[in-house]
Design a protein around this nucleic acid. Sequence first.
DNA 1: ATAGATAATGAAAACGTTTACATTCACCCT
DNA 2: AGGGTGAATGTAAACGTTTTCATTATCTAT
Lengths: 331, 331
Amino acid sequence: MTTTIRQVAAAAGVSLATASRALSGSPAVVESTRKRVQHAAAELDYNPNRLGRSLVTGLTGNIGLIFPDISNPFYTQFLAELESVVASRDIGILIGDAHEDSDREASLLRQMATQVDSLVLVSSRMTDFQITAAAARLPVVLANRQLEPGTPVPELLSQIVIDVDPGFSAAIEHLHTLGHQRVTYLDGPARSWSAREKRASLSQACARLGIDLSILRVEKPDFDSGRAIAQHLDPATSVVVAFNDQVALGVLSICRDRGIRVPDHMSVVGCDDSLPLGLAWPALTTIDSSSGALGALAARAVLDPAAHRTGSVPTRLIVRDSTAVAGASAR
Amino acid sequence: MTTTIRQVAAAAGVSLATASRALSGSPAVVESTRKRVQHAAAELDYNPNRLGRSLVTGLTGNIGLIFPDISNPFYTQFLAELESVVASRDIGILIGDAHEDSDREASLLRQMATQVDSLVLVSSRMTDFQITAAAARLPVVLANRQLEPGTPVPELLSQIVIDVDPGFSAAIEHLHTLGHQRVTYLDGPARSWSAREKRASLSQACARLGIDLSILRVEKPDFDSGRAIAQHLDPATSVVVAFNDQVALGVLSICRDRGIRVPDHMSVVGCDDSLPLGLAWPALTTIDSSSGALGALAARAVLDPAAHRTGSVPTRLIVRDSTAVAGASAR
DNA sequence: ATAGATAATGAAAACGTTTACATTCACCCT
DNA sequence: AGGGTGAATGTAAACGTTTTCATTATCTAT
C-alpha cells in the first residue's frame, strides 16, 4: 500500500542503509547512487514514515500546545502568531484544549509527551510541581504563567509572561484623572496566574491613588459570562474594568439592553485588544496585551530554549470611547 | 530515563507480552497478574509510548486539520467546535496552516499522513486530483468544499458543506425590498470553493430580481483587506455585500473614517456571524453560516466516516442595523 | 490414567526507520 | 609487492510497542 524505504532501496538496487543515507543527505554516499535512490523514491512516491524515524532518533519534529480554552480569541491569536514564526521549519503542531481543567491538562500532557519534542503550556492551571515534573522529561515553555518566586527553575523550562503593570497602572491613572473614586473589577478564573497578576497590579494602583476597588469573579472569561455578571451589577457602578475584552463586551451588551449609557453612565475598560474593538459601540477602551506577541516570543523560546529562558511582553492603555469623566450623565 | 513497558514487565515479574496484555485490558490475563502489572506501572509512572504502539497497530490516535489561515475566526471557531465534539475520546489534534497556498497544503498533508488516522481539509485550495489522491491513502473529510460534480468520490472521502443559498437569497431579497437596485460584492479568494458558491448564489438571486451586481475581489479576506478595498470604492456605492464579516468590518471602518454613514448612505452586509457583531457600530446585518456547526459536523464525519459521507449546514439572514432603505440619506 | 481441550503465559516477529559496526575494494606509499 | 588508508556500501541492532504463535500447566471427560 504505502511505500517504504525498503522498496525504494530495492528499486534502486541498494541496501536499506544506503537508501536512508542517500535520502537524508549523508555525505558518505556517492553522487551517482544518490541520484538513483532519489529517482526511485520520486518514482514510487515515497514519504518517510515519521513514526519509524522518531522511534529511533528520539525526535518527532512536533511541538505540543496546551490551552485552557481554544475558543478564546486570546489563545487563537497566540496560536496563529506562534504558527507563523514556526512555519518555515517544517514542524508539526499538536494542540490540546484543557477546558480550564488541570486534570485534563495533565492528561493531555501525558498523551503528548511521547510525540512532541517540546511543549508549550499556555496559561497553565497545573501546579508548579506538575509543571516542573513535566520539564524534567522534555523542554517546556511556560507562557502567561510563572513559577512561584523561589521555586527552583528546571534547566528545560522557559517562562514567557505579560507585564501587566504599565497597562493597568495607566488605566487606573486614566480613570483617576477622569475623577472616578470607585472601580469594580471583573476578575478572571481562580486558578489563572495572569488573573492574579492583574488583580495584584490593579489593587496596588488603586491603593496608590486612593481608589476604592471591589472585585467580582467570572469563572469562564467569555462574552456570556460577562453578560451574566453584568446583570447583577449594582446600578450605581460607575466603572467596570474587565479581565478581558470578551467580558467587557458582555457588559457593554447588557448596558445596551438596560439603557445604561456608556460612557456617560458607566465607564468600561477591557483587556487584551483581542478583537476589532475600535468598531464596537462604543469603541472600547482597553489594555493592550498582545497575545500575538506572546505567541511569537513563545515560538522563539521553543526554537532556541537556551537563548530564551525568560521573556516578557509589555502592556499599554488604549483609550477609546468607553471611558469618560465621572458623573457625565449629570451634564 | 523514561520508563518502558519492558521495565514494568520486569518489575512485575512477567514477560513483555503479558505486561502489554495486562495494561491493554486483554481478557487473556488472570486478574491477579493484571493487578500486579498495573501496580508496577503506576509505581514507575509508566506512560505508553504512542510512537511504538502506532508503528505496530497502524493507528495513531491523532487526526489532522489543515486550514487556509488559522488567524481567521471562521476557522478558529470551526476548530474549537470540532475539538469539543472530539474531546471525550482522547484523540490528538494536529493542525496545519497552509497560508492560502496549495503547495504548502500538499506538503502539510505529506507531513501529517504518517502520523494521523484521518485528515480534515478545511476550505482546501488543492485540486480535486490531489484531494482524491489523499483520500486513497487515508480517510479524508472535506469541509467547506465539494468535488466537481461528476468526479468519482473515493470511498474514504466525506464532504461537509455550507448551503449558502437560503442566506444569500434572503439577503438580496431583503435589499430588494429596501429598494436597492445595485449591489457591490466583495468576493473572496480566487481558489476558494465557497467563494465561488457565494458568488454563484448571489448572481442568481440578483438576476432573479433584476438587481445590478458588480464584483470586486479580495485576495485575503481579512479586516485590513476590507479596509484596503473599501478605500477604492465608488463613493456612489449604496450596497456592499462582503465575503465575510472581517471584510465587512473593514468596510465599516473606512466608512467611519470618511464620514460615510451606514446605513444611511451605504448598506453593508457581512457573512458568517463569526464575531460579536451585535456590538459593532452599527450592528452588522450578516448571513449566518456557522463555522461552529460545520466543525461539529466534520467531527462527526471523522468519528464515523461511513455514517456521514455528506453533510450540510444551512444559512440564514440576520438583519441588524447596517442595512436600510435606498436613498435614506435624502430623508 | 490418559488424551484432549482450555487457560495463562512466554518467545519472537513485526512495524519503518536510523546508525554503529563490519565488509569490500581501489588506491597510494614505501 | 604488500600493508595501510579511506571511501562506499552492506549487515544488523535498536527504538517501544502489539500480536502471532508456541509452550506450559490445569482441568475435564473418557
